[in-house]
């Protein structure tokens, strides 16, 4: 009988503790499983240096992007005679990227090289989760290139379809830490306009890219694309090199400025993957910059006054 009494007392003490909750522990019972685990801002921009990143435009955001690649810093075409390449514009690019949804971006642009027009689509398929449910981001990218320039020879664009090139890429990235993000991207470029018969029309490539945040708004970025020696012989009569770019990326609100150094003369994948003829070793490196400005469209569609922002 005595043990029963003791048990009852023990039970009541247990109950007391069970119910003597403070507000903190009460709150914890509400919070279970509600945390947002999506990993944001794997890269600050939709481009790393030369290559795309897994990022897409936000819904209804229009990005105006102006890019410039100067001439060789050293070597035969560089040095003081061209002010270390600054006299030369090896490629220029103006483009618009628009976010149809948060995951789907369409883009149009035009490059100086080959008077290349490009139309592209980019779709974010998988998104990294911080709870480990999804370890990587996966974005699919497709780009159509149209060479608009006059043919150099009568036979160059024998049929109009020879002016087109098609580029497909799967971008896989992971934000390792809040500072470091890494990316790998296998790709395939299909084209007709090759320089020699041994140069294959279909070029496989695999790229690697990374971002290291130095401060909250300043990052070191780099990318490298392996293409020569993969499906393309390395002993073509014209020597081609693998594009390597490094740069600093500065973000201020809706602007991103990138200051880059790269061996590739050209800006778009459809040009720089098959056409990089300069290399870092003999002064073929050049300076380049990107200016990106984001505009949010359809702000009037937002009817929620609690979210309304306004620029006077």
């Amino acid at each position: 009988m005595k043990t029963t009494g003791l048990l009852v007392i023990a039970f009541s003490i247990f109950l007391t503790q069970g119910f003597a909750q403070n507000a903190d522990s009460l709150l914890r019972t509400l919070d279970s499983g509600k945390a947002d685990t999506k990993v944001d801002a794997v890269f600050k921009s939709t481009r790393v240096v030369l290559s795309h990143s897994t990022e897409t435009q936000k819904k209804h955001d229009l990005d105006l992007r102006i890019r410039h690649h100067f001439g060789d810093i050293g070597g035969r075409f560089g040095n003081a005679h061209t002010l270390y390449g600054l006299d030369v514009a090896s490629d220029l690019f103006i483009g618009l990227d628009y976010g149809v949804t948060d995951d789907f971006t369409v883009a149009v642009g035009r490059s100086k090289q080959d008077e290349l027009f490009n139309f592209s689509g980019k779709y974010k398929l998988l998104k990294q989760k911080s709870d480990g449910a999804m370890p990587v981001n996966l974005t699919m990218f497709a780009q159509l290139g149209l060479v608009a320039r006059e043919p150099f020879t009568d036979s160059e664009f024998a049929t109009y379809s020879n002016r087109f090139s098609y580029f497909f890429q799967a971008l896989i990235s992971r934000k390792i830490s809040s500072r470091l993000s890494l990316q790998a991207m296998p790709g395939l470029l299909m084209r007709k306009n090759t320089s020699e018969s041994r140069d294959p029309e279909n070029l496989f490539s695999i790229g690697f890219a990374g971002r290291m945040k130095l401060t909250k708004r300043l990052s070191f970025v780099a990318d490298y694309t392996l293409v020569n020696g993969l499906s393309r012989p390395t002993d073509l009569s014209q020597a081609y090199y693998n594009p390597l770019g490094v740069g600093l990326e500065i973000e201020t609100g809706g602007h991103i400025f990138s200051l880059n150094f790269m061996n590739s003369e050209y800006i778009l994948e459809n040009n720089f993957i098959p056409g990089t003829k300069k290399n870092w070793g003999d002064g073929g490196v050049r300076f380049g910059f990107t200016i990106s400005r984001n505009f949010t469209l359809f702000k009037s569609k937002n009817k929620d006054p609690d979210k309304a922002s306004k620029i006077y």
Binding site: A41, K58, D61, D102, G254, N294, T296, N302, D304, S309
Partner: peptide
């Protein structure tokens, strides 16, 4: 936010 980039 109404601007997602601003939210980021």
């Amino acid at each position: 936010f109404d601007r997602k980039l601003m939210q980021e």
